[in-house]
Computed example of a mutant assay.
Amino acid sequence: MNNPHFAFTKKNYILMLIGIGIIILGFTIIGLDSEPHGFGFLGLTLGPIVTLAGFLFQFYAIFYRSEKK
């Protein structure tokens, strides 16, 4: 009982921070669209794809397991 077991390791937290950064980048790309109401390529295509990739990366970061035991 002296050795507490945490659900996430340091690498999980680093990967989660990277995922949050990718999500923020996606929303920033959406906001940079110069078309009215974000109806251009950045607002409708590139930004949402980057944001979705960030969320998928978050799932990877949460489920990542190091092989060291």
Score class of each variant (00 low, 15 high):
residue 27 F to Q: 15
residue 27 F to N: 14
residue 34 S to I: 09
residue 20 I to T: 00
residue 39 F to T: 14
residue 51 T to R: 06
residue 67 E to L: 12
residue 42 L to K: 03
residue 50 V to R: 06
residue 41 F to L: 06
residue 13 Y to S: 02
residue 39 F to C: 09
residue 10 K to E: 08
residue 24 I to H: 07
residue 4 P to G: 02
residue 3 N to Q: 05
residue 16 M to D: 00
residue 17 L to R: 11
residue 6 F to N: 15
residue 65 R to V: 01
residue 63 F to M: 13
residue 12 N to L: 07
residue 6 F to Q: 15
residue 14 I to K: 11
residue 20 I to P: 00
residue 50 V to N: 09
residue 19 G to M: 03
residue 53 A to M: 09
residue 8 F to G: 12
residue 10 K to F: 09
residue 64 Y to M: 09
residue 23 I to E: 07
residue 15 L to M: 02
residue 68 K to M: 03
residue 56 L to V: 08
residue 66 S to R: 01
residue 58 Q to A: 12
residue 69 K to Q: 10
residue 41 F to S: 03
residue 40 G to M: 03
residue 26 G to L: 15
residue 37 H to G: 04
residue 65 R to K: 02
residue 16 M to P: 00
residue 22 I to S: 04
residue 6 F to K: 15
residue 35 E to A: 13
residue 17 L to D: 01
residue 60 Y to A: 10
residue 66 S to P: 02
residue 37 H to L: 07
residue 25 L to A: 05
residue 23 I to M: 14
residue 14 I to Y: 12
residue 2 N to V: 15
residue 1 M to K: 05
residue 47 G to K: 06
residue 51 T to F: 14
residue 24 I to R: 06
residue 64 Y to N: 10
residue 11 K to H: 05
residue 38 G to K: 09
residue 53 A to C: 11
residue 49 I to L: 14
residue 50 V to D: 08
residue 13 Y to L: 02
residue 32 L to N: 09
residue 19 G to N: 05
residue 43 G to T: 10
residue 57 F to A: 11
residue 53 A to R: 05
residue 26 G to W: 15
residue 23 I to N: 06
residue 11 K to Y: 08
residue 20 I to K: 02
residue 5 H to P: 00
residue 17 L to E: 02
residue 43 G to F: 11
residue 28 T to Y: 15
residue 35 E to W: 12
residue 3 N to F: 03
residue 41 F to H: 02
residue 27 F to Y: 15
residue 59 F to S: 02
residue 36 P to L: 10
residue 21 G to L: 04
residue 61 A to F: 05
residue 60 Y to L: 11
residue 67 E to P: 09
residue 24 I to D: 03
residue 48 P to T: 11
residue 17 L to C: 05
residue 32 L to G: 04
residue 25 L to I: 08
residue 18 I to P: 01
residue 54 G to C: 10
residue 18 I to T: 05
residue 64 Y to V: 10
residue 60 Y to G: 08
residue 8 F to V: 14
residue 57 F to Y: 14
residue 37 H to A: 11
residue 2 N to G: 15
residue 63 F to R: 14
residue 15 L to K: 00
residue 27 F to V: 14
residue 9 T to L: 04
residue 54 G to D: 12
residue 23 I to P: 01
residue 43 G to Y: 07
residue 50 V to W: 10
residue 4 P to L: 04
residue 14 I to R: 12
residue 36 P to A: 04
residue 33 D to V: 01
residue 69 K to L: 07
residue 35 E to K: 14
residue 41 F to D: 00
residue 4 P to W: 07
residue 59 F to M: 05
residue 9 T to H: 08
residue 53 A to S: 07
residue 31 G to W: 08
residue 52 L to S: 13
residue 66 S to M: 02
residue 51 T to Y: 14
residue 28 T to S: 15
residue 58 Q to I: 12
residue 46 L to P: 12
residue 20 I to A: 01
residue 65 R to T: 01
residue 61 A to L: 00
residue 16 M to Q: 03
residue 55 F to W: 13
residue 48 P to M: 14
residue 32 L to E: 05
residue 27 F to G: 15
residue 45 T to Q: 07
residue 54 G to V: 11
residue 10 K to I: 09
residue 52 L to W: 10
residue 47 G to Q: 05
residue 26 G to H: 13
residue 7 A to K: 09
residue 23 I to A: 09
residue 12 N to Q: 08
residue 34 S to C: 10
residue 24 I to V: 13
